[in-house]
Design a binder for these strands. Structure first.
Length: 476
RNA sequence: CCGAGUAUGGCUCAGUUUGGUAGAGUACGCCGUUUGGGGCGGUGGGGUCGUAGGUUCAAAUCCUACUACUCGGACCA
């Protein structure tokens, strides 16, 4: 199908430009006067709301409650956990004045809220009966990033952060894994984005964590994106923050904690995994508008039919709009394709004559004809499910193509140069060997995966005994 | 943060070399016509030339600083 494209750069020619073109042309976000703080426009925000709705339900179903913490953190509080400060200090923005007066203690804009939660928990938790605490908050955070791109890396962005406190390490570790799996499920079932999950290396883990579990996704261009993380803290925060409880043996003990989060970066992932040269492609399950009806004619008959179909679909809970604007049909097709609407229903005089409508799907551009006497709601629902599934399968097949098993370090250089993706390789666990990868176009360990079968018994780098199977890639 | 580039109407860009009264296409408004993949004709409105300084009789054009974006590199819990 020959589709004219006046507006956006091809993703093959210039992926970075293509990405920002979609963000702005599909009106997901606009630039603001503040570097790194974007204006999330209605379409982008509606996607975020659907993401929130989906995830929030999964959190609530597993016993979590939402809370809200302050945006400002006193400097002294931020400094309580050494590794944590070291990790975040370089990118904290500070409030130093109230009106015209200097503040006695400067206040950091939260880059993440561990210390706020910990401070709160220290005053709230006294007995094992107070545990577990399973809290989450939806909020914005600030990190003074040097390089920013809409949704992908901002100085201000929206996210959720879960912070839980448990009686035992076992319980806390189970929580860490439970939340990782919730993210995995959400990415695969709602966003149609296949992911790999595993553990970060010591070097890459969250500042202050015992260990970090991660959800990694591969973008269309083979660059990987850290899309969600789940951290096990052990007692690393509860000790310095003096959170303690009287345990079942009548002794004071520091509890075990976790934190987990994901952000508006998911929207970047949706764009970079599913988008094409005609714009955004939204997975049906999170698309704010699932169906657009385009009447091809201003005749009353066609128009009435369009609105009749609209009502049928809306009554069935399918978010639908009619676009009866003056634009030519081709213009309207292109516009809704840019915006990523999963299904377009074309309806013209010719269809009315034949007593049918045309369903065009966004993911493959294939059109199908549905007789008017058929159950349109069923047809649409079936098609939405199929699109959702197909988008996932397409992304999964591409990932498979871009995932390479390597046993020699020099193969990695060729791959990252010519056809970047995930390299699966064995690693001895030494940082020295981990660093060798960095010399190859900044390739980094993305995650350690324990549940796949080893591909070699020697480290790809030093040839000593291999301990871990690791996915390596170039990261955003 | 380092190197290179870009910034002119909503968007894409010409004009900058060689200083001399702001241009086009597209989009937008209105009228008409049309409608099965970004239609056609007419007409109208819209720009402190990224921001702030400087040089000059005169600056979109030359100089300086800053900001934003793009590419490459460094960094990225």
């Amino acid at each position: 199908m020959d589709i004219k494209n006046k507006s956006i750069t091809s993703r093959e020619d210039d992926f970075a430009k293509w990405y920002t073109d979609i963000v702005t042309k599909a009106e997901m976000a606009a630039y603001s006067k503040i570097k790194g703080s974007i204006i999330i426009e209605p379409r982008g925000y509606a996607v975020w709301e659907n993401i929130q709705r989906g995830l929030d339900k999964m959190f609530k179903d597993t016993g979590h409650e939402n809370v809200y913490m302050p945006m400002l953190i006193p400097e002294s509080l931020l400094q309580k956990e050494a590794n944590h400060v070291e990790g975040f200090a370089p990118e904290v923005a500070w409030v130093t004045k109230g009106g015209n007066n200097d503040l006695e203690e400067k206040l950091g804009l939260r880059p993440t809220s561990e210390v706020l939660f910990c401070d709160y928990y220290s005053s709230k938790i006294q007995s094992y009966r107070d545990l577990p605490k399973l809290y989450n908050q939806w909020c914005n955070v600030f990190r003074w990033e040097k390089e920013t791109r809409p949704f992908l890396r901002g100085r201000e962005f929206l996210w959720q952060e879960g912070h839980t406190v448990h009686e035992t390490s076992k319980e806390a570790e189970e929580e860490t894994h439970r939340m990782l799996n919730i993210y995995k499920t959400f990415f695969e079932e709602y966003l149609a984005i296949p992911v790999i999950t595993g553990r970060k290396t010591e070097k890459e883990k969250f500042a202050g964590a015992d260990y970090t579990l991660t959800v990694e996704a591969l973008m269309y261009n083979g660059i990987s994106l850290q899309s969600a993380t789940s951290h096990y803290f052990g007692q690393r925060f509860s000790i310095p923050f003096d959170i303690k409880f009287l345990n079942r043996n009548g002794e004071y003990e520091n509890p075990y904690q976790t934190s987990w989060g994901t952000s508006t970066r998911m929207i970047a992932a949706i764009i970079m995994v599913h988008g094409d040269d005609n714009g955004l492609v939204l997975p049906p399950r999170i698309a704010p508008t699932k169906v657009v009806i385009v009447p091809i004619s201003k005749s009353e008959e066609v128009k009435n039919k369009a609105y009749e179909l609209l009502n049928n679909l809306k009554d069935a809970g399918i978010s639908t709009i009619v676009d009866d604007s003056e634009k030519s049909p081709g213009f309207r097709y292109a516009e809704h394709e840019m915006n990523g609407v999963p299904i377009r229903i074309e309806l013209g005089p010719r269809d009315l004559e034949k007593n049918q409508v045309v369903l065009a799907r966004r993911d493959t551009y294939k059109k199908s004809i549905v007789p008017l006497e058929a159950n349109l709601v069923n047809e649409v629902n079936t098609l939405l499910d199929d699109i959702q599934k197909n988008m996932y399968e397409t992304a999964k097949a591409r990932n498979a193509e871009k995932t390479y098993e390597c046993t020699q370090l020099d193969e990695v250089a060729e791959i990252m140069e010519n056809r970047p993706g995930f390299v699966k390789a064995m690693w001895c666990g030494e940082e020295e060997c981990e660093m060798k990868f960095k010399e190859i176009r900044g390739t980094k360990s993305r995650c350690i995966v324990d549940n796949e079968k080893p591909i070699d018994d020697k480290c790809i780098c030093c040839k000593k005994e291999a301990k871990h199977l690791v996915y390596w890639g170039i990261q955003y």
